[in-house]
Amino acid sequence: MRRLLPHPLLTVSLALLWLLLVNQLTAGHVVLGALLGWLIPFATSSFWPERIRIHHPLTLLRFLGVFVIDIVRGSFLVASLILKGPKRLRPAFVEVPLALETDLAIGLLANTISLTPGTVSANLSADKRTLIVHTLDTGDAAALVAEIKQRYEMPLKKIFEEGSE
């Protein structure tokens, strides 16, 4: 099983991507998509050293919900800040200490931060322990760090890292 289907999640996503790309739901394309989804992981296996595991699917769903809401909230916030004008902004660089350890989780956290209210991840320290985040408008840097850790980092840690240690 492990040898035949090394990355089941990747296979499913590739098949779905193929169906979206051809924009038709016919039996032929489902088979072709499944075939591509099965073959491509073998061709690119050196890019996927370890299998991705999701430990808490429900947490993942809740995280996705929070994520979508925060994208919309973040865009409205940034739009209103831009309209108010550059003089009102209080930009700052904030350092967020990371509890995450795997590359995948850190990458996802950095992307999440960039898409959510008023923050863009700018740099990751060489030892992968701190993420440098630029914010557009902060009153309280410590509160922002706490919010990032509680809102995004904890669910990611639970989904991708818990149980793997």
Binding site: I71, V72, G74, S75, V78, A79, L81, I82, L83, G85, P86, L89, P91, F93, S114, L115, G118, V120, A122, H134, L136
Partner: peptide, 25 residues
């Protein structure tokens, strides 16, 4: 609004926010 932010804000790091979030949405 995303492009307005790009044109209007004062330093590179703040300008980065407009296109990343507003334009994408």
């Amino acid at each position: 609004i995303g492009s307005l932010g790009l044109a209007r804000l004062r330093d590179f790091y703040t300008r980065l926010h407009g296109p990343t979030k507003a334009t994408t949405l």
